[in-house]
Design a protein around this nucleic acid. Structure first.
Lengths: 342, 342
DNA sequence: ATATGTTGTGTTATCGATAACTCAAAAATA
DNA sequence: TATTTTTGAGTTATCGATAACACAACATAT
C-alpha cells in the first residue's frame, strides 16, 4: 500500500510537503505542487483516513442507525440522511438494529470504537436509554429520530404520532366503525404510546367508549404472533376495523386475515401508520398516515451536522413532522351486518 | 476521550499490559487482569479502532456497495450481507451508488481511504470497470454481485437473467401474447443484455419474430422517460404485453399506463424481474421472476470473507442463483380484441 | 549595507494502539 | 546451592498522517 512517504521519496520532497499539497495548506511553489500531484496520480495514491483521523481527532464519518432496513420508511429516510451527509462532505456508516436492543448495543460499541463524529439514531425503544447514555459519556453528538426516549435530552426529529393516529381513527369512525382494534408496537416505544393516545382521543371526542380488549401490543418489526389476532377475532363482539401501528404490522395482519378467509376491507377495514415506498406504489391499497420519510433523514442529518459544526451550546431543537392521511381502498363504510365469526 | 494510557495509569500498569488484557494475548496474572478490567469498565473505555487498524494493517470493516437502497431487492440483499459479516466479526460500511457511476467512484475513493478489508460490489454497469480496477490496483479483495463486468476476473454471485427472462416471456407467450415489448435496463449492464437474450430465445423457440421497435433501453433505477412508452403505445401495431427488466421499471410503467387510462392486465399484461419484498406482500400483483435476494447477500459475503481469510490463490468462483417464476394477476390471456389506441 | 519580512520547505513530536524485544523475580531443575 | 526455565510484566519502535516549530534563501525596507 502506497503511503505519503512513498510519494515524498519519488517526488524528492518531505512528507510534510506532500501533506500540504493534499490539503492545500501552507505555501507551496507551483513547480513542487505539480510534481507532487503527478507522482500521486501515477501511483494512484489515496491517503489513509485512519492515520489522518488519528491525528486530527476527527473521522469525517457519521453514523446512521435505523431499526429495520427492510422497512421502506427507513430506507427512504436513509436516502435523505445520505444525501445530507454526502453534501456536507461526510461518509456514512450505516447500522441496522432490527428492533433488537442487543444488536443495537453491539452497533453502539462499533460506532464508539470507530470514533464517528456523530450519530443519527433511531432507537429501538425506551431501553435504548443506556445506549444513548453510552454515547453521551463519550461525548459523541447525536440526533434522535422517530422515537423520543425519556431521560434523554437531545435534538429530535419526530413524526406527529398522536395527530396521525387521530386522523386514521377519525376516518374509521366517520365510516361508521365503532369497534376499532389497535394492534400497536411495544408500549416502551414512544410512538406506540402516542398512537394509543391519538386512538384514545379520537374515541373520546366522538363519545365512543374504549375497550381494552381491543388493544394489543406486538413488535413493530414483524407480525409473528397469531394469537393476538386469534383473541381479537374470537371476541364475542369482534372489531369491524383494525388500526395497525405501522406498515409492517399491517402487512402481517392482512396476510393473516386473508389466510383466515376474511376480506379487507369487505370484512374488516384496515389502516396503518407509514406508507410503502415505491414497492407499494403499484396498487396503493392501504389507507395510511404517511410520514415524510426522506425529510426525516434529511432534516435529522442537517441538525446533526449543525450540532457538530455549529455552536455546540446551542439549545436543543425538536422538530415534529406532520403526517398525511392517504385514503385508499383498505377502508370502507361499516356494513349493516358486520362480519360474524363462524 | 479515554485512551489505553489512561487505563494503564489508573491501573498502575503499562499500556502494553492493558493491550494484553484487551486482546487476551501474552501472560497476565489473574490479579492484574481483574484490576485492569475493572478500570476499563469504570471509565467506559472502548479501544480506538483507528489506532488499532493503523498498526495491524487490518480494519475489520467490509464494505457493501449497492446500486439502489430504495429497491427491496437490494435491501433484502443487504440484510443477508449484514448477517454474514456480523457473524464473522466484521463491521459493515454501506454505500449506495444510485446507479450513478460518479457517485460510485466517490464511494470507491472513500472505501479505499478507509482501507476496508474487502468489498461486496454491485456495479452500476460495464463502466464500473475502472472503479473495480482501482480496487485491484490497491489489492482490495472484492466479490462482484448481480452484474458481470467484462474485463474483471473476480468471484461472482449472479442471478440467472437469461433463464428468468425466458420463463417470463414463455409465460406471456403461453397466454397467447405475440407482441411483447421489452423495457430494458441500460445495454451496458450485463443483466440487461442477458434478459434481452432470454427474451430473444423465448421468441425464437416459439417461432415468433422479434421486432426491434418493441425493445427499449432505460435506466434500471427509475422510470422517467415517458417517451419510451409513448413510442410503444403509438406503434401502428402496439404490444399486448410488457416485460419490464426490473421491479422499479415495472412500477413506473404501470403508473404511467394507468395515467394513460390503460388497465393492467386488462389492456396490457406486465411482468418483471425481481420481487417487491414485504411492502409488496399485501397485494402481490405483478407476475415476476423472483431472485433470492437474501441469498445473494449472504453467499456473496461468505465468498468475500473466505477470500480474505482463506487461501487467496484459490481459484475464482462463480455462483449463479436461479430465479423463480411467480405467476400473479398482472398477466392474463390475450383477448380476441386487443386494445387499440384511440 | 543592514535589518526585517516573506516564501518554501524540512524536522520533530504526536495521535492510540500493538509487535518485538528485554528483563527481573519466582519457580523448577540439577 | 547453583543453574535454568517460566512467568509477568515493561520499553521501544512502528503504523501514516499532520501540527507546530525551525530555518535557509531571497526580497524588501530603512
Amino acid at each position: 500500500m502506497i503511503t505519503i512517504y512513498d510519494i515524498a521519496a519519488k517526488a524528492g520532497v518531505s512528507a510534510m510537503t506532500v501533506s500540504r499539497v493534499i490539503n492545500n495548506t501552507g505555501r507551496i511553489s507551483e513547480a513542487t505542487r505539480k510534481r507532487v500531484r503527478k507522482v500521486m496520480e501515477d501511483l494512484h495514491y489515496i491517503p489513509n483516513s485512519m492515520a489522518r483521523s488519528l491525528v486530527l481527532q476527527k473521522t469525517n464519518i457519521l453514523s446512521l442507525l435505523i431499526t429495520d432496513i427492510t422497512n421502506p420508511f427507513y430506507t427512504t429516510l436513509a436516502r435523505g440522511a445520505e444525501d445530507a451527509a454526502l453534501r456536507a462532505g461526510y461518509r456514512l456508516l450505516f447500522a441496522n438494529s432490527d428492533e433488537d436492543y442487543t444488536k443495537e448495543k453491539g452497533y453502539v460499541d462499533m460506532i464508539l470504537s470507530t470514533r464517528v463524529d456523530g450519530v443519527l439514531f433511531a432507537p429501538t425503544g425506551d431501553q435504548s436509554l443506556e445506549n444513548l447514555q453510552q454515547l453521551q459519556k463519550h461525548q459523541i453528538p447525536f440526533v434522535v429520530l422517530d422515537r423520543e426516549i425519556p431521560g434523554i435530552e437531545a435534538d429530535l426529529v419526530l413524526g406527529d404520532s398522536k395527530e396521525g393516529a387521530r386522523k386514521l381513527v377519525d376516518h374509521l369512525i366517520a365510516l361508521g366503525h365503532r369497534r376499532i382494534a389497535l394492534i400497536n408496537g411495544s408500549p416502551d416505544v414512544s410512538t406506540a404510546r402516542l398512537r394509543y393516545t391519538g386512538y384514545r382521543e379520537a374515541h373520546l371526542l366522538s363519545g365512543i367508549p374504549i375497550e381494552d380488549s381491543l388493544v394489543v401490543h406486538l413488535n413493530y418489526r414483524d407480525f409473528h404472533d397469531e394469537s393476538a389476532l386469534d383473541a381479537l377475532l374470537s371476541h364475542e363482539n369482534p372489531p369491524t376495523a383494525i388500526f395497525a401501528a405501522n406498515n409492517m404490522l399491517a402487512v402481517g395482519i392482512i396476510q393473516s386475515l386473508r389466510q383466515r378467509g376474511l376480506q379487507v376491507p369487505g370484512d374488516l377495514s384496515v389502516v396503518c401508520f407509514d406508507d410503502f415506498g415505491p414497492a407499494g406504489a403499484i396498487n396503493p391499497f392501504l389507507t395510511v398516515a404517511s410520514q415524510p420519510a426522506y425529510q426525516f433523514g434529511l432534516l435529522g442529518m442537517q441538525l446533526l451536522i449543525d450540532r457538530i459544526e455549529g455552536d455546540p451550546s446551542q439549545e436543543l431543537r425538536k422538530m415534529i413532522l406532520p403526517s398525511e392521511l392517504l385514503i385508499r381502498t383498505s377502508t370502507q363504510p361499516l356494513k349493516e351486518e358486520p362480519w360474524i365469526q363462524t
